[in-house]
Nucleic acid binder design. Structure first.
Length: 679
DNA sequence: GTAGGGTTAG
C-alpha cells in the first residue's frame, strides 16, 4: 500500500495544481446539525430533476439554494455522472472541494465518467484522503483503468485490486471484463476460479463476459468455452437471451460450428428473441450462408422487431458476400428510409460492399459524399483500391488522409503496391513504418512484402525477408511465397516452402498441388500422380474451381467442367462459336497449363471448361445490348489462359468484363485488363 | 430521512 502510494505520488502528472491547492483546504467539519426540512426537500427536488436528465434545471436549483449540504453536491455530481456528462461532473467535483470533503459517493461518480488525466488526479486525491480502498471508489478505479487505452492499464487495475480490503461481485466482474477485453482470457478464467474461492457467487454478467472473452481464443479455448456453456446450462443462465447471443458468437468464432449456432437460436422462444440476438444469427449466417441472412431479416420483420443500424450493416455485408450490387443498393434505400443514412459505420460498410461487388465507382461515390470520415472509412476505400488494382489512387488517398494511419492502412497500401508491382514504393513505405508512422510491422505487413518481392520475381529477397522477420512466419507468409514460386518457378524453393506450409496448415492443398504440378510440367506424371494420391489418402482436397454470375435476380453457379449446369449443351455450342471468333483475333490456348498426360486436343477442351469461361458464355447468352458490364466471381485465382480469353472477349463483344478471383478484381475492357497482366 | 459503483450480446 505504501509502495503503491509512493509510486503514484512520484508521478509528476498526478499533482494537479488546482487540486493540490484545494487539498490543504479540504478538511471541513461535517455538520452534525440535522438539515432543515427546506434543504431536505430541495435535495429531493434536485435529485428528481437530475435523474430525469433535466440537468440544467437541477443545476439552476442547486445554484439558488441558500444552504447546501454534502447531499446537494453528490446528488448533482451523480446526476451528471449518470448521464455521462464528464466535463460538468469533474468541474462540480473540483468546486465541491472548497466546501466539503468528498465522500465515496462523489469519488465513485466522478471516476466513472472522467477522462484518464483527471482520473489520475482524483485517484491521487482519494489516496491522500484514504478513500482509495473503499469498495465503491476502488471498483470505479478498477473499471476506469481498464477502460483507458493506456499501456499499463492492467498494471494499475491490478494494483487497485490488490490494495482492496474486501472485494465484491462488481470488483470481480470489472476485473474479468477488463482482462477479457485486453486479450488476457487465461487470467480472466483464473480470477473466475479465485472469485469462487473468495466466496463470491457469479452472476449473468460474469458468465456473459467470460463467454464473450473466450471467443476466438486459440488451442484449448474451445474446451473452456464448452465448460462454460455447461455451467450456463447448469445455472439456468443459458436461457438468458444475452448469454445465448454470446454463446452463438462463441460457437461461430471458436469452432466454426454453424449448426450449433442455428440450434441455439432456434431453441430460443420467439418472444424472447431481441434485435441483438437476431443481429448475431444474421452475422453468423452472412458468413456461412448469406442468402439465409436475408431470409432471417424478413423473419425478424415479421416478428415486429424494428431493425437498427447494426442490422442494416449485417444486411449489407450479406449482400456483399452474395456479390449482388443491386441488393446492396436496395438495402441502402431502406437505410435512407429508416433515417440511418448519416451513420458513419453504415457508409463504411457500404464502401466495402460496393467494392466487393466490383463497383469501385459506387464505393468512391459513397466515400466522397460522406460528411465525416474515420480511419475505417479511409481503410475501406484504400482496401477497395488495393483489390481493384488502383495503386496510384490508393497512394494519392494515403497522402491526403486526415487521420493517422493504423496497421490496417499500411496493409492496404502495401497490398496496393503488391497488386500493381510497385516494388520501390512498397519497400520505401515498409521501411518507414516504424519511424514515420510509429507502427511495428506485423505478420500481415511481412506477408505483403513477401508478396511484393516474390510476385516481381525477387525470390531470394522474399526468402531473406522470411528468414529475417522477428516472428515465426505463418501459413499466410508461406502461401504468398509459394504463390511467387508458382509464377516464377523454382523447384527447390517450391518443395521447401511446400514442406513449411504442410507443417503449418496441413489441410492447405496449395503446397501439394504446386509440387505435383512441377513434376507434371517436367512430364514426371507418375510422381505427380503419387502426390495427388497422397492428398486423397490424407483427405486434403484441392478447392474445385467455381464461378458465379448474376442474371436477372438469380445467381448462376458454374463448376469447372460445367456438367452440373442444365444448359451445358447450349453453353458449349455458344463457346465453340466464340472460340473461333477469338482465335481469329489472336487467342492461342495455353495448353501447357494443362498438366495431365492427355492428348493436345483434350488439353484444349479442358481449358474451355474452366468455370469462368462457362460463366462468361452464359452471361453473354442472356445479356441485352444495354447490359454493358458482365460480372463474374471466381473462388480461386484466374489462370493465364482464361485471362487471355477474357481480354480478347471484352474486345470482341464490346462489353466490360469484371472478374473477381480469389485475390483481386480484373476489369477487362477493349482487350486490356486493369491489372496490366500483372497478377 | 436524501446520493452511489460494474458489465452486458451486435
Amino acid at each position: 500500500m505504501i509502495t503503491a502510494l509512493t509510486s503514484l505520488l512520484t508521478k509528476p502528472c498526478l499533482l494537479h495544481l488546482t487540486l493540490s491547492r484545494q487539498l490543504s483546504r479540504y478538511i471541513h467539519p461535517i455538520s452534525a446539525a440535522p438539515p432543515s426540512p427546506d434543504l431536505y426537500f430541495s435535495n429531493h427536488f434536485i435529485n428528481m430533476n437530475a435523474k430525469r436528465g433535466q440537468l440544467e434545471l437541477a443545476h439552476q436549483l442547486f445554484d439558488k439554494m441558500p444552504d447546501k449540504n454534502i447531499f446537494s453536491w453528490t446528488i448533482l455530481i451523480s446526476g451528471y455522472s449518470h448521464h455521462g456528462k464528464s466535463a460538468q461532473c469533474s468541474q462540480l467535483f473540483s468546486q465541491m472541494l472548497s466546501h466539503h470533503r468528498p465522500n465515496d459517493f462523489a469519488y465513485a461518480s466522478v471516476l466513472s465518467v472522467c477522462d484518464h488525466r483527471h482520473g489520475l488526479q482524483v485517484h491521487t486525491f482519494a489516496l491522500k484522503t484514504g478513500f482509495d480502498s473503499w469498495i465503491y471508489v476502488a471498483n470505479a478505479l478498477v473499471s476506469m483503468y481498464w477502460k483507458k487505452n493506456i499501456h499499463d492499464a492492467g498494471f494499475e487495475a491490478w494494483r487497485v485490486f490488490h490494495a482492496m480490503d474486501s472485494r465484491n461481485l462488481i470488483t470481480y466482474n470489472s476485473m474479468i471484463s477488463g482482462l477479457g477485453t485486453h486479450g488476457q482470457c487465461d487470467k480472466a478464467l483464473t480470477l473466475f476460479i479465485s472469485m469462487q474461492r473468495d466466496g463470491i457467487e457469479f452472476d449473468r454478467t460474469t458468465l456473459l463476459t467470460l463467454v464473450s472473452s473466450l471467443c476466438g481464443r486459440p488451442n484449448d479455448g474451445f474446451m473452456c468455452f464448452l465448460q462454460l456453456h455447461c455451467l450456463c446450462i447448469k445455472t439456468g443462465l443459458s436461457l438468458d437471451v444475452g448469454v445465448k447471443t454470446a454463446l452463438i458468437k462463441g460457437y461461430s468464432i471458436s469452432a466454426k460450428e454453424f449448426n450449433a449456432c442455428r440450434k441455439l437460436f432456434l431453441e430460443t422462444n420467439s418472444k424472447d428473441r431481441d434485435v441483438i440476438l437476431w443481429t448475431e444469427i444474421m452475422t453468423v449466417s452472412a458468413e456461412w450462408d448469406p442468402q439465409q441472412a436475408l431470409i432471417l431479416f424478413n423473419q425478424m420483420r415479421k416478428d415486429d422487431l424494428r431493425p437498427d443500424h447494426y442490422v442494416f450493416s449485417v444486411l449489407i455485408k450479406a449482400c456483399a458476400n452474395l456479390v449482388m450490387e443491386q441488393a446492396v443498393s436496395a438495402v441502402y434505400c431502406r437505410v435512407i428510409i429508416a433515417g440511418f443514412d448519416n451513420v458513419l459505420e453504415l457508409s463504411n460498410v457500404l464502401i466495402h460492399g460496393y467494392a466487393r461487388c466490383g463497383s469501385i465507382h459506387n464505393a468512391e461515390r459513397v466515400f466522397d459524399e460522406m460528411p465525416k470520415r474515420d480511419i475505417v472509412s479511409w481503410n475501406s476505400i484504400l482496401k477497395a483500391y488495393a483489390v481493384h488494382g488502383k495503386a496510384e489512387e490508393a497512394l494519392g488517398f494515403f497522402r491526403r488522409m486526415d487521420v493517422a494511419p493504423d496497421e490496417t492502412t499500411l496493409v492496404a497500401i502495401l497490398s496496393s503496391c503488391s497488386h500493381a508491382g510497385m516494388i520501390k514504393e512498397g519497400i520505401t513505405i515498409f521501411d518507414s513504418m516504424e519511424n514515420k508512422y510509429g507502427i511495428l510491422p506485423k505478420l500481415d505487413h511481412y506477408a505483403c512484402m513477401v508478396d511484393i518481392l516474390g510476385r516481381a520475381g525477387h525470390l531470394s529477397e522474399a526468402e531473406k525477408i522470411i528468414r529475417q522477420m522477428p516472428m515465426e512466419p505463418d501459413h499466410v507468409i508461406w502461401s504468398a511465397f509459394l504463390g511467387a514460386c508458382r509464377k516464377h518457378g523454382d523447384a527447390n524453393l517450391t518443395e521447401f516452402a511446400s514442406l513449411k506450409l504442410k507443417e503449418l496448415d496441413p489441410e492447405n492443398s496449395l503446397g501439394y498441388v504446386l509440387v505435383s504440378n512441377i513434376y507434371c510440367s517436367n512430364n514426371s506424371f507418375n510422381e505427380g500422380g503419387f502426390i495427388r494420391m497422397k492428398m486423397n489418402e490424407i483427405g486434403v482436397k484441392k478447392e474445385p474451381g467455381l464461378s458465379w454470375t448474376e442474371i436477372g435476380n438469380r445467381v448462376h453457379e458454374f463448376a469447372s467442367g460445367g456438367q452440373r449446369h442444365p444448359q451445358i449443351k447450349e453453353i458449349l455450342q455458344n463457346m465453340e462459336v466464340l472460340l473461333q471468333q477469338l482465335k481469329k483475333i489472336g487467342y492461342v490456348p495455353e495448353t501447357n497449363l494443362v498438366l495431365f498426360d492427355v492428348e493436345e486436343e483434350h488439353k484444349e477442351e479442358q481449358l474451355y471448361h474452366h468455370s469462368e469461361k462457362l460463366a462468361l458464355v452464359f452471361a453473354l447468352m442472356n445479356a441485352s445490348d444495354s447490359n454493358r458490364v458482365i460480372k463474374i466471381i471466381k473462388n480461386i485465382r484466374i489462370c493465364l489462359d482464361c485471362h487471355n480469353f477474357m481480354r480478347l472477349a471484352s474486345k470482341f463483344v464490346g462489353k466490360v468484363i469484371v472478374v473477381r478471383d480469389a485475390n483481386r478484381f480484373h476489369h477487362f475492357k477493349e482487350g486490356e485488363c486493369s491489372c496490366n497482366d500483372y497478377w
